[in-house]
Amino acid sequence: MKKLFSILLFVTLFAAAWTSKAAAQDPQPPSDDDVNRVARQLFCPVCENTPLDVCPTEACRQWRALIREKLAAGWSDEQIKQYFVEQYGARVLSEPPRQGWYWAFYLIPVVLLLLGVYILYRAFTSMRQPLSESAQVEAAPESPAAVETQGQQDYLRRVEEELKKRN
């Protein structure tokens, strides 16, 4: 959540600073930290589910070297990521790209969560109706407010009992 945010912010700021710097003076060789910053956002198909910056395989070492090459050439982080997607497919990204089919990936959990909220709301309202219907059929018609007060008095009585016990 927040991490991504700060990375994005950092990346944009840095990219801006970097491009201007790269244009202004001799390109400084990118540091390991620069390489890792990009690598952290990529996943190599050879070691699945391990971020590129900590993956010890030879393939991943080459990928990091490529990132370094591209950084030295003045590419921005986004450009490099885009390049990797073109070369190796969408699976190198830490998340599905936000396009086409993949929107469903982002929307479905939200829809399910909203459904959960709705079910919970229904549960609240239905449970607050006078007890279960079967029990209430013969009972004298009571206004919901009356039931509420009664239930509440019930609860208060219990709490008082509890306090007595505790003391």
Binding site: P45, A59, Q62, A65, L66, E69
Partner: peptide, 17 residues
């Protein structure tokens, strides 16, 4: 031999190496 083709496909690799 016209009847045979070899194709090499480079998997998950970077250009320079």
């Amino acid at each position: 031999d016209e009847r045979v083709v070899f194709l090499g496909i480079d998997y998950t690799d970077t250009p320079t190496p």
